[in-house]
């Protein structure tokens, strides 16, 4: 599954806010981190605010902050603001979809869509934060395993 650019940006942003829910982030900070224009990101953040996931904070030190429940909001809740992850049966929009081949293909594609939706609907922001922590730890473990090998190579 490939997400549209705005959807990916929304997920990155929401997870940045979720990692530090008490902090207000200006859009420019996240835009710089992910290499997009602040103007583009502002539109994405505004959509998240309209959906009740973020709240804009005005004044000095303002920006946005998260106002949703980390243990309730799932990836699909964010994605569906920007796109439909999978189309309903028989709505692929190609001319062959009403043929036997098209219908059979539709059954298979629908299986994939169901699995995709089930996965995205079962992963909350809190779960993603734990997954990110494990990824960080795995990265650190890999780095620490590499370091002694380099040292022993020098010693040799």
């Amino acid at each position: 599954m490939k997400l549209q650019k705005n959807t990916s940006l929304a997920l990155y942003s929401v997870l940045e806010f979720a990692a530090d829910p008490t902090r207000h982030f200006p859009a420019t900070e996240i835009a710089a981190k992910y290499g997009v224009s602040a103007h583009h990101l502002a539109k994405v953040l505004a959509a998240l605010a309209r959906a009740g996931i973020l709240e804009s904070v005005r004044g000095v030190g303002g920006g946005y902050r998260l106002v949703c429940n980390l243990r309730r909001l799932t990836l699909i809740d964010v994605i569906q603001i920007f796109e439909d992850p999978g189309l309903p049966d028989g709505e692929r929009g190609d001319s062959g979809e009403s043929t036997p081949v098209g219908r059979a293909l539709g059954v298979v594609l629908s299986e994939i869509d169901q699995m995709t939706k089930a996965t995205l609907a079962s992963i909350t922001l809190a779960t993603m934060l734990r997954l990110m922590a494990r990824q960080r730890k795995a990265g650190q473990d890999r780095a620490s395993r590499r370091r002694p090998r380099r040292a022993s190579a020098r010693n040799a």
Binding site: T74, Q114, M115, A118, A121, S122, I123, T124, T127, R130
Partner: peptide, 18 residues
Amino acid sequence: AHDNTLILSFFRSQGMMA
């Protein structure tokens, strides 16, 4: 069941993956 979102979310929160 893939529509059992509640229990799926629970197992996901415990670190289970596909």
